[in-house]
Structure formats: structure tokens, C-alpha cells
Design a protein around this nucleic acid. Structure first.
Lengths: 157, 157
DNA sequence: GTGTTCAGGTTGATGTGTCAACCCGGCCAC
DNA sequence: GTGGCCGGGTTGACACATCAACCTGAACAC
């Protein structure tokens, strides 16, 4: 029935996945960099900020959305602020400043998102088609669940 | 028949994939770092070197196998040589030195590979099972092909 | 020989990610 | 009040990635 395929087979498939992930990631990243002068990190932060009504949110909220380390986010925001994509805003409690999308940042993300989306469709979504896509996503979700369980086990040691 | 699913659906699935790729990658990486004191880059170089009979190969061959930029590889080898994982060896043509796996590097990779493989099985291969794995790998291969075609088109502009 | 070319390697500068240390201001005990 | 605690943010040091500039020595022309 195919359940007894040898190790080498599964290994090759794993490598195929690794190859795909690497190439797809770097291709999307290079596109963003070349066409929009944005790194993948820039893009992610900007996307999160546009998901807020006010184009502004507490740093902690961005951290939660991106699941980044606080220090990584802080460095990233510093660099983005230097380039004028975002600005830091002191909130009521001055320990927890907000981040706000600047006009320049808004322009950048408005240009980047459609191009990025189009590329994702051309290279991934349209290639798979809806049915395989659903199977693929289900597989990803299962792996994510396995990861969570694994992490729980690790923590409980 | 489901062929007319809305954009939002496909987008969610894409995000699921991105999440999975991110978490799986960083989990594997952290494991290597914690348990074996190897970065993903170290691991990849060491694996390539063990695939050679002599535990030694020209730098260019490693570059071809990893598909890394020559400068990235050079920096990486410098750091690995400093930590005693590999050593540079002058070949006949002194322009093109070899890289050799040291005993320490061999010990590190001998410890790392089984653990890494086990983790890949637990988190990915066994989660999917052989049949879904085959479909998954086929999807990855198709995306890779689409990427290649896309790159060709870009170059011919 | 001399010099020109050139593939491949190294180096330096800069941007990015991660870890550990530190800072800061609200909060609570007293 | 005053002092200690503590969560969240920032900073500094280092590992890594990328780009451009440079070096190096074989190969070829002459």
C-alpha cells in the first residue's frame, strides 16, 4: 500500500521541501528588496501596523503579532525609524511607547502588498490550485500542532 | 465543487504555510544550537563535507552543493575554522584551496545528524505519513518548477 | 618572457538576528 | 513617603548574510 517506503524516499521528500522553502522565501524577499526597498522584516512590521485602525499600536502588540523577541523588534523599529518608515510615540504610560506608521511607510506598504500578493499567487497558490492547497494547508496545520505538543513536552521537563 | 473559494481562504492557507515554515525552521535551528552548539549554516557545511569520501573537498564544490554566495561561504569557513570544525588546506592549484573536516567537526556532525533526523521525523515525516508526504513533496516540486520558470522569465527581460 | 584576462577566493562595510545585561517607571508593602 | 519588585523596552556585543571591492595565480596571446 506504500506504507513501507524506505527512509531514503522520505529523506528526499524532506529535502525537496527544504529546497522549496529556501528558494520561495529568498525569491519573495529579493523581490521585496529590489522593487520596494523593503526587507522581509520591514514588510511584516508594516503589515501588522496597517491591520490597526489608527496606524499605530503599542510595541507589545506588534511583538505579539509577529512573535518576535522584544530586542529584535526594538532593533528593527530603530532601523525603520531611521529610514522614516515608522515613528515611536510616547503613550500615557511612558514605559510602553507606541509605534506609528508614517506617510512614507504607508506609501511603501501600499505599493508592496499588491505586488507581493500577486507573486504569492503566481508562485504558490495558483500552482497548487484550491484542492491541493487545502491539503497542503492541512498538512502545515498538523505539523504546527505537532510542534506545539513537542514544545510543551520540552517545557514540562 | 470548491473551485471558487474566496481570496481570503487561500490567504489564510498561505499564512498557515508561512507560520509552519517559520516555526519548524526555528525549532530545528534552536535544537541544533542548544544540543550540538551548531548553527544551521555550520550543520549544512558539515553535512556536505561528510558526503565526500575524503572528508575534504574544494571550496567551490561546497559552494555548488549549498548554493551559497562565495563570500558567505568564505566568512562561514573562517568562523568554522576558528572554532576548529574545519580547516583550510592548500591544494595543487593554490588559488583553490580545499576544506577538510577536522576530528572535532566530525564528532559534532556525528552527534548532530541522528538527533536532527529524529526530530525531522517526529515533527514532519511521521506527522504526515507516507501518502500525504508524497503529495506534499510533489506540491513542493511543482512550486520549485514554477520558481525556476519565473526566474527564467525575469532573466530574459 | 611579458602582460592581459579571468575564475574563484578573501576582505571590509553594512544590515540583520540573538543573547545577556541593563534601564525605567508603575506598583505594592510597610 | 521610601524602598524593593517586576514587566516591558532598550542597548551592546557578537554571529550571520549580502554587496562591492579587491587579490591571486593559472592560462592564453603575442
Amino acid at each position: 500500500m506504500g506504507w513501507e517506503q524506505d527512509i531514503g524516499e522520505a529523506d528526499r521528500m524532506w529535502r525537496t521541501y527544504i529546497e522549496m522553502a529556501k528558494h520561495l522565501g529568498s525569491h519573495l524577499q529579493q523581490h521585496l528588496q529590489r522593487e520596494c526597498d523593503l526587507s522581509a522584516a520591514d514588510f511584516e512590521v508594516l503589515v501588522r501596523l496597517t491591520e490597526s485602525e489608527r496606524r499605530e499600536m503599542p510595541v507589545a502588540e506588534v511583538a505579539a503579532a509577529t512573535q518576535w523577541e522584544k530586542s529584535r523588534l526594538s532593533h528593527q523599529l530603530t532601523r525603520m525609524a531611521q529610514r522614516g518608515l515608522v515613528e515611536r510615540v510616547d503613550a500615557d504610560d511612558r514605559r510602553y511607547p507606541d509605534v506609528r506608521l508614517t506617510d512614507k511607510g504607508r506609501a511603501a506598504i501600499d505599493k508592496a502588498v499588491p505586488e507581493h500578493t500577486e507573486l504569492v499567487h503566481a508562485l504558490f497558490i495558483d500552482v497548487l490550485g484550491p484542492e491541493r492547497m487545502a491539503g497542503f494547508a492541512q498538512a502545515c496545520a498538523d505539523v504546527l500542532r505537532a510542534l506545539d505538543e513537542h514544545r510543551e513536552r520540552d517545557c514540562s521537563l
